[in-house]
Simulated assay, not measured.
Amino acid sequence: MRIAVSAVGRMKDGPERTLAARYLDRAVAQGRGIGLTGFAVTEMAESRASSAGARKGEEARALLAALPEKAVVIALDERGRSLASEDFAERIGQWRDMGRSDLVVIIGGADGLDETVRERADLVLSFSPMTWPHQMVRIMVAEQLYRATTILSGHPYHRGD
C-alpha cells in the first residue's frame, strides 16, 4: 500500500520541515518489510478566493482531483474521531490487508476542509479539538505514520500498554 500526505499550503524550510521529513524517512525504512511504501508529501496551493467557503471549495476540488482512484482517505479535522495510535495502526493494517493500493492523509488549509472532503473520507480523524499550527499537524501526521509502521512490525519504538 502506497501512503501519501496531501496538504494545502507549503511548509517552509526549517526545523519543522526537517522533523516531518525525518519521521517519513523512518516510515519508509520501517514500512518496506510490511507492505507500506511511498510516504510522499504533495503540497497544494492555498486558494486566493475572497471568502472562506470559496477557498475551502477550491482547495477541496484540488485535493479530491489529485486522489488516486479508490484511495483510502483519512481527512484531518478537529471535529473528527480520536483514535489511539494502536487503533490507527490497526486500521491501516486492515486496509492494507484488504488489498487497498493507496492511502492518502489530507490536511486542509487555514480555513479547514470543505464538507465534500469529509464526505469522501473513509476516516475523519482528529488529533484534538484544539486548533494546531499547520507545521505541527504535518509533524504529528508523519510521526503517527511512522509509529503505525512500528506497531504493525512489532518494533519497540511504540511502547504503549
Rank of each mutant, 00 (worst) to 15 (best):
A110K: 15
K12H: 15
D102A: 08
R32S: 11
A84K: 05
L24T: 07
A121N: 10
G80L: 02
A27F: 00
V28Q: 06
A20I: 04
K56D: 03
G57P: 02
S85Q: 06
V8Q: 01
V104I: 14
T42V: 13
E59R: 00
G9D: 02
P129L: 08
H134I: 07
T18P: 04
A62S: 15
L67N: 02
R100K: 11
A29M: 05
L36Q: 04
Q135G: 09
V41E: 05
D114P: 09
M44Q: 12
R96F: 07
G108N: 07
V141H: 11
R22A: 14
W132G: 00
R100Q: 13
A121M: 04
F88Q: 04
R91M: 12
V28L: 08
T37M: 13
H134N: 07
D13R: 14
A7N: 02
V117E: 04
A75N: 03
A148V: 09
E59G: 08
G80P: 05
T116Y: 04
A84P: 00
S47N: 09
L64T: 09
P129F: 06
R147E: 13
L36Y: 06
P15S: 13
E90I: 00
L64W: 04
E90V: 00
T149M: 09
T42Q: 15
V105G: 12
D102N: 15
L63S: 10
G80Y: 07
G109W: 02
A49D: 13
D77T: 01
Q144G: 12
G53Q: 14
D114K: 09
A148F: 03
E16H: 05
A7P: 15
R10A: 08
S126Q: 10
A89D: 00
D25H: 02
E59L: 09
I106E: 04
V72L: 01
A54I: 03
S47A: 13
S47K: 06
S101Y: 13
S51R: 05
F39M: 14
A21H: 10
M44Y: 06
S126P: 12
R81L: 06
M44N: 07
M11N: 00
